[in-house]
């Protein structure tokens, strides 16, 4: 099958996939415990929450968007659902309400970015504080526990020995990857990220797609919040702190860029898997836990440097037409509409 947009994106998936395999092979030799079912499942369970969010975040970042507030949405929807459950709401209604709240926060972000034209970073940075703050207000700084068993089943039940969060993440990744790769509707995100103004003049509903992108990200973050709360059996006011950075890091390692126009869900999952593997490997071979964050940063940097080198090379081939121009351009401050 011929490639659609960036051959680069596919190369990136291949590259990350190869590194993932290499790390796995190396770890099998380094630690007999690594390949055990228990370790693999623990590893997958650990990344399932961020992988769920990464599915929607990939679509959003492909369209040139960006959401810093997902960690706060996770905490807020978890706390809101738990509060409703504590107030005696039926499990189904509390879950639906949690999902609706997540989607509503995304809609709020999307409306401000697309219709009012505030920069995505600034808007969602504000939301990050807004909804972390609201979480603290409704929980009054306490964890909410004593949730009904039926609710805990969402994150704790197992099928053939596999916990539900892993299954939910896997299903969403597969559907999400197919959607973004093949569905006409979601392919529009690539056009928007590639050139927003040209996309609009090509008849794409840019504002609508952007708002939908944020709403889906909010919805998926809401789902992640419910899954996490259920798995832990309690809503924590600090849940999801720093999660947004892990999700965005995974999506970028997987081939997306802040400019938009590239990236895949499979890549984002592999990025997330690679980060989890590295963390796991460092733990198993007994490296001090404080090194983990450092290594994740290094991984991100190496991934984008390799990517950049690849792009430079492909541009040099055509005799780089670009003249150095003293123009001010910022990666985060993308023009908003025409």
């Amino acid at each position: 099958m011929k490639n659609w947009f960036g051959r680069l994106a596919r190369q990136r998936e291949f590259m990350i996939g190869a590194i993932v395999v290499a790390v796995c092979v190396a770890m099998t030799f380094a630690s007999p415990y690594f390949l055990s079912t228990g370790n693999i499942l623990a590893l997958l369970l650990g990344l399932s929450v961020e992988a769920i969010i990464a599915v929607a975040m990939t679509n959003l970042m492909v369209s040139g968007g960006f959401d810093m507030s997902v960690g706060s949405i996770v905490a807020f929807t978890g706390a809101a659902s738990a509060t409703l459950l504590a107030a005696g709401w039926p499990v189904v209604l509390a879950v639906v309400a949690g999902l609706a709240i997540g989607a509503a926060i995304g809609l709020f972000n999307g409306f401000i970015v697309a219709k009012i034209g505030i920069n995505a970073f600034v808007t969602t940075l504000a939301s990050l504080s807004l909804f972390r703050g609201l979480t603290l207000i409704i929980t009054e700084g306490r964890n909410i526990s004593g949730l009904p068993d039926a609710f805990k089943e969402i994150g704790q039940a197992t099928f053939f020995g596999v916990q539900t969060p892993i299954i939910i993440a896997a299903v969403l990744i597969i559907i999400g990857d197919i959607m973004l790769r093949r569905f006409r509707f979601f392919r529009q995100s690539y056009y928007i990220g590639g050139n927003e103004r040209a996309a609009r003049l090509s008849g794409i509903n840019v504002d609508g797609m952007k708002i939908l992108g944020y709403t889906l990200t909010g919805l998926f973050a809401g789902l992640a919040g419910i899954v996490m709360t259920s798995r832990l059996g309690a809503a924590s006011m600090t849940a999801g702190t720093g999660l947004e950075l892990r999700v965005i890091t995974a999506v970028i390692i997987g081939g997306a860029s802040l400019q938009g126009g590239e990236g895949t869900v499979l890549g984002a999952f592999l990025g997330s898997l690679l980060m989890a593997l590295i963390t796991n490997a460092l733990t198993l071979i007994g490296v001090d836990v404080y090194w983990q964050t450092f290594v994740i940063g290094a991984t991100l940097l190496v991934a984008v440097l390799i990517d950049q080198a690849g792009k430079k090379r492909s541009q040099a081939n055509v005799g780089a037409r670009r003249i150095p121009v003293a123009g001010a351009r910022s990666a985060l401050a993308k023009g908003s509409g025409s």
Binding site: F185, R187, Y190, G194, S202, E262, S338
Partner: peptide, 29 residues
């Protein structure tokens, strides 16, 4: 350059941009 083309996309993606619906089978491109 700024409003017409998707400069980083190949020719085929640019040709398809304004008629994605016509170049689909069902919901799939």
């Amino acid at each position: 350059k700024t409003q017409g083309l998707f400069l980083d996309f190949p020719l085929r993606a640019n040709i398809a941009a304004n008629r994605l619906e016509g170049l689909s089978r069902g919901p799939f491109l």
